[in-house]
């Protein structure tokens, strides 16, 4: 009996240790980076796009650099919690994270200042990919374009993936520019919004392309517009909002970050490993499966993209007097 007790305790403690809750990372000189595990943190729960992208990259980087790259989820505050932790981590390249552009460009427009994070507090390693939004209507409705919505003359109830997301920003801008009376109905992510749309509980919804491509292909929902600058290859026949006469260009963009002050040699090494991962067939297929458009730019290009987005969004919100949330 005692033996069983002892064994049970050992097993339990061992398992917990194995699950690697609290772990220390090895550190070494810059020249021979990496000498230990590189931890990639995700500011979201398992299963979301950011999580899946991180895991795909972690797998490739691990192969390239020959060390293991555990992925740790630290969900909270749209990723702000993870960002703040990364910010204060040791800048040695052993802790890196994929982050979302919306956290820096859109969320600050919707939430209070203490939840906002600044891009300048991080070192950029490189760009990853762009995730686009599409405006959808149920197949049963006769609506085929934004103009059709205007013609219907009623107050449009539009579903979005939540407050402070690109989906909310894009829809709000589009309806304001088209002067369509509309009410924002936020959902917690793409899946519930899409479900409500399929049941015609709402008139239209703006959702990430990857989350709705199967339903679009099955003709359960009709795409009205994509909010990218140009048509995307996954939905080549769907016109952009811009083509339809509305200046709405909103995308999610993800990039690789490290704590501020990470040595250049380490960043270069990480970027090289990431680039080699991006070039693999497996990763290209991953992008296609999830309808992600690769934009694997240099840190300067990433910064430029983000700055442009941030400035443009802010200007447009002011111009059309839209508020995404109450600060």
């Amino acid at each position: 009996m005692r033996l069983i007790q002892a064994a049970a305790v050992t097993a339990a403690v061992g398992l917990l240790t194995g699950c690697g809750g609290v772990k220390t990372t090895a550190t070494g000189g810059e020249g021979d980076f990496p000498t230990g595990n590189i931890q990639m943190t995700v500011g979201a729960a398992p299963g979301g796009s950011t999580d899946l992208i991180t895991r795909a990259i972690a797998e490739g980087v691990s192969k390239e650099l020959g060390v293991s790259v555990p992925v740790v989820n630290k969900p909270g505050a749209n990723g702000a919690l993870n960002a703040k932790e990364l910010q204060s981590a040791k800048p040695d390249g052993y802790k890196i994270a994929v982050q979302n552009a919306s956290l820096f460009t859109i969320t600050p427009l919707a939430v209070s200042a203490n939840e906002a994070v600044k891009l300048d507090d991080f070192d950029l390693i490189g760009g990853i990919s762009q995730d686009d939004y599409v405006l959808l209507a149920p197949a049963a409705s006769a609506v085929k374009s934004i103009a059709d919505l205007k013609k219907s003359g009623k107050n449009i109830k539009y579903g979005t993936t939540g407050v402070g997301t690109g989906a909310q920003l894009a829809s709000a801008l589009a309806f304001k520019q088209a002067a369509i009376p509309a009410t924002d109905v936020p959902f917690d992510g793409g899946a519930p919004a899409l479900t409500a749309l399929l049941g015609s509980q709402i008139d239209v919804a703006t959702i990430q392309v990857g989350d709705s491509i199967a339903q679009i292909k099955a003709k359960k929902v009709v795409p009205l517009a994509v909010f990218s600058a140009e048509r995307i290859k996954f939905l080549p026949e769907v016109p952009t909002a811009k083509e339809q006469g509305y200046d709405v260009v909103v995308s999610q963009y993800r990039f690789l970050t490290a704590p501020k002050g990470t040595p250049d040699a380490v960043k270069t090494k990480l970027l090289d490993a990431a680039k080699k991962t991006f070039a693999t067939e497996a990763y290209k297929k991953f992008n296609d499966d999830h309808c992600l458009t690769p934009i694997e730019g240099t840190p300067d290009e990433v910064r430029k993209i983000l700055d442009e987005y941030a400035t443009k969004y802010k200007a447009q919100l002011d111009q059309y007097q839209i508020s995404l949330g109450q600060k």
Binding site: P75, G76, A77, N78, A80, L81, K84, A110, V111, S112, N114, E115, G162, V163, G164, P186, D188, L324, G325, Q326, K327
Partner: peptide
């Protein structure tokens, strides 16, 4: 946590840990 509809922080006492 953060109100899903308005983005307002409710009863979080300005703690980021409670934001979600």
């Amino acid at each position: 946590g953060r109100d899903t509809f308005t983005g307002a922080s409710r009863f979080t006492f300005d703690t980021l840990n409670l934001a979600d």
